[in-house]
Write a protein that binds this DNA or RNA. Sequence first.
DNA 1: AAACTAATCATAATCATTACGATCTAATTC
DNA 2: GAATTAGATCGTAATGATTATGATTAGTTT
Lengths: 160, 160
Amino acid sequence: MEKEEFYKNLQLKGYRLTQRRQEIIDYLFTFPNRYIAAREIIEYLQSKHATLSFETVYRNLHTLRDEGLLVELQFGTEAHYRIPCTIAHHHHFVCLACGRTYALLSCPMSTIKDFPEGFEILYHRFEIFGLCADCQKAEQPTLVNALISNQVDANLSKRE
Amino acid sequence: MEKEEFYKNLQLKGYRLTQRRQEIIDYLFTFPNRYIAAREIIEYLQSKHATLSFETVYRNLHTLRDEGLLVELQFGTEAHYRIPCTIAHHHHFVCLACGRTYALLSCPMSTIKDFPEGFEILYHRFEIFGLCADCQKAEQPTLVNALISNQVDANLSKRE
DNA sequence: AAACTAATCATAATCATTACGATCTAATTC
DNA sequence: GAATTAGATCGTAATGATTATGATTAGTTT
């Protein structure tokens, strides 16, 4: 979706195109195929407007997410956001350092046969986390937290 | 792993079997195949010992997780823990209301072919969240948070 | 039983996020 | 194009989950 179309969708849904809201959207549009942490957006906007309230950023991100105009992904200790992909349902490789994503067209749900009886599926998640080629060269400190808080998966695969 | 074996492993690794630690482990052992929120463990231990420090519970959960003796899973707004499965690497259906899990033996990693060039995989996660047959009858309030904070996935599948 | 060091408690701080009431501003109407 | 009016923002404070620290307690070893 292009930026102008994004604005229009927002207004069709009855939301105003405010200065802050537009700045948030514009910022996300400058990073195609990347998840950006809420904190990063706050830092950016605060550098432009010293009076920015956190609440404004969080409220907007949640509104846009609830309307399906943004995609949210939790990793490390923070929520991350991005402009949605335009292609059909799929999953991602996600770089823990820069948030860049790489599409993975296959969805594991299609191959599953052993569903527990009577279980109502509400949603699923499948992500492959790691380091993109660029970030392997220059490891960033943000990586550490994300790794530690997900050590579980590392341990699980060790036991295999 | 049986409880006695768990204790022994802990001591072999040089950790003491303290009262609090044992109570945490025992509590988790009373819920086979279920993820328990750190908060639930704290509430339980506080009801037994008014002087309990949060830190004690969090520290123990992290220590045990780091040693591979517990498995951690983040969903909703909280970290959840469980005694590890004894079978090889696999994934789960997870009930959002009670935390009960159902094994899913296939792992999507085995079928993936389109890896982005130079991407270093550190870990992956794949979970199917929903409501088990029991919890569908009596929906719990805890469910709401977990759902809201993962609305992204619901939206993604809508767009499909 | 004394000694040693890990583990706990008590207390406070941190980080990410959410809440609330007063003020402002984008869109609509006159 | 000024007045109107919700919707959005700011300012401030609070919350929930988790982490930090230093004094005290308690498993384990000698």
